[in-house]
């Protein structure tokens, strides 16, 4: 009875994990250095930023929306944080928290704009965030005069290489965010409303809820995670640049979708998203270690993404039969 319940939960929340485990096993067998602590730790670092963005993206996609602007908003956030942190008039103790604040605030402001425009004029988020993608990119080039910002304080950079028992700090932050988000989605009224609206917005509205507020908030959350991701980016690479982040939206969307979240909204989980991001990271790492060429890697990665989603449809059927 209990094993059935556990199996059901596994299938529902983390069924795609089977694919991840399978990939890891294959790489461990065929790539000698894959299953080393060092390499695993590297993969953790490499998937952290995408995971954080994908958490916010999951909220938006659960509502049936999409945010294409995360890449350029990320660049904007890094530059604003970079400008703050390198300001000589600020004492270090204030500069670092202020930079984090600036980055989060910028991300949330962009998210607020996205959500508000979508709801106020009933435009699909695809269009609005496509516009934001360009606006944020233009703004960041303007603000930075298209220059890269570097030479952050040493104290700040030191955070980036911190790790505990081989687990990098930035990955711990990413996992914490996933857990917090998971708690919000599964245990709070807000999370319940996200799923409900994603399934049937009109029914929720007619049950006496203001659905617009929830939808705008989801975009603000997405912006906040982008702001956080920007800080992680700076911690990892010690650089803030107006041209970074191209194509980040696609990686984030891929992680969310591989993780089993439905593009039409209402179904999915953040644990799935974390696994989705891990699958992408493991593929990039493992295939490169196998010595595969860039072109072949792209082909294989693309094919495995599609295959993972196909396997996911079988998982859904299996879980239905169990219930």
């Amino acid at each position: 009875m209990d094993t059935k319940k556990i199996a059901y939960l596994m299938l529902n929340e983390a069924g795609i994990g089977v694919v991840l485990v399978f990939l890891c096993l294959v790489f461990s067998v065929f790539v000698p250095k894959f299953a080393t602590m060092n390499n695993i730790s590297n993969i953790f670092t490499q998937i952290s930023i995408n995971t954080v963005i994908a958490v916010g993206m999951t909220f938006v996609i659960l509502l049936g929306g999409i945010d294409l602007s995360v890449g350029s908003v990320l660049a904007l956030c890094t530059i604003l944080a970079g400008l703050t942190i390198t300001k000589e008039t600020l004492p270090l103790g204030a500069a670092i928290p202020l930079a984090v604040l600036a980055s989060m605030a910028a991300g949330m402001a962009c998210g607020l704009f996205n959500g508000w425009v979508c709801e106020r004029w009933k435009i699909h988020s695809f269009v609005v965030t496509l516009g934001m993608l360009n606006m944020a990119r233009g703004a960041v080039l303007q603000v930075s005069n298209s220059r890269t910002i570097y030479s952050f304080p040493k104290e700040f950079n030191a955070f980036g290489t911190l790790s505990y028992y081989g687990i990098p700090l930035i990955f711990i932050i990413a996992v914490l965010l996933v857990l917090i988000g998971h708690f919000i989605l599964k245990k709070t009224v807000f999370g319940r409303m996200i799923y409900a609206i994603g399934n049937n917005e009109e029914a929720v509205r007619l049950s006496g809820h203001n659905t617009k507020i929830y939808k705008v908030t989801a975009f603000v959350i997405c912006g906040a995670t982008v702001g956080l991701a920007a800080i992680l980016y700076m911690l990892r690479l010690n650089i803030a640049s107006p041209i970074l982040g191209n194509g980040f939206e696609l990686s984030a969307i891929a992680a969310v979708v591989i993780g089993g979240t439905s593009m039409s909204g209402g179904k999915g989980s953040l644990i799935g998203t974390l696994i989705g991001a891990a699958i992408i990271g493991v593929l990039n790492n493992g295939l490169l270690l196998m010595g595969m060429s860039d072109f072949a890697r792209q082909i294989v990665t693309g094919a495995i993404i599609v295959a993972a989603v196909i396997i996911d449809t079988y998982r859904a059927r299996l879980s239905k039969m169990l219930s």
Partner: peptide, 25 residues
């Protein structure tokens, strides 16, 4: 109704405050 959600979630949809405290269900 929200067809793809459970019966209990549907019944509490208009009175979610009655089954939650401080935003937690």
């Amino acid at each position: 109704l929200i067809l793809d959600m459970q019966l209990d979630c549907n019944i509490s949809l208009a009175s979610i405050d009655k089954v939650s405290k401080l935003g937690l269900i």
